[in-house]
Design a protein around this nucleic acid. Structure first.
Lengths: 124, 124
DNA sequence: CGGGATCCCAGAAGATACTG
DNA sequence: CAGTATCTTCTGGGATCCCG
């Protein structure tokens, strides 16, 4: 059962989602899913608002979980390429399904939000 | 394309996930998926570590997005029952798929983490 | 070029107390 | 019982500087 005793152990979902439930991980995975191999600054350019620090942190975390692999080429100037591991690709499939759901239902959610704001703030 | 210009608009995924990508939303949805109808304190008891404030906030947010419905019974003492809306149930399906993925791959991830920690800290 | 290290702040979230 | 209000504490994440 979930949530009765040690929620961490019995419910890996929470643990897993705690990892890529942050601001940038999912984005990063989706980007790497589109293009197979990307260099640091290519990724940074595509993820729009991300700072280099957060991208570094995110990539490290994904690497730690075995979702992303990091290839360093000892050249001058240095080159580092990131790509999804097989595990990362299998997660990608789930995220794409979730993305499809989101695209399909975004309007319903936006409508619900409007209805909600009108219900709580019938002011003016 | 995602991430080139207005990432919010072109990628509803991010927006959606920003909503239930927090600490408790997914848990809450999974709980409501199991039991159909739950009162506030029942939920609170099952979600283990959640504070009553965070549960309130989470439920409000889910209600606002039309994922959860809230039924208030004007009794003494008051009773409030929460349940998933049809939209919430459709999301539940996605989350269950994600949960399955997590359960299936949690070991690989844990192994990857161990490998990583040994790679970076060969100390002692 | 691809980061690591440090500083700092806003906002998220916990604890506690009060209320209809 | 199911919240709201307030206070405090903690953490995510931006800015900046530096280094191989």
């Amino acid at each position: 059962m979930c949530g009765k005793g040690e929620s961490e152990e019995c419910c890996p979902v929470k643990d897993i989602l705690a990892r890529f439930g942050d601001k940038w991980s999912i984005y990063t995975i989706l980007m790497l899913g589109k293009q197979e191999k990307l260099r640091f600054n290519e990724l940074k350019a595509q993820i729009t608002g991300v700072s280099q620090r957060m991208l570094t942190v995110t990539l490290r975390s994904l690497e730690e979980d075995g979702l992303v692999s990091r290839a360093v080429y000892p050249e001058i100037p240095p080159r580092v390429e990131y790509s999804l591991t097989p595990l990362g690709k299998s997660l990608l499939l789930q995220l794409l399904a979730l993305a499809d759901w989101a695209k399909l239902n975004i309007n319903q959610i936006l409508e619900a939000r409007e209805r909600y704001s009108k219900k709580t703030q019938p002011i003016s």
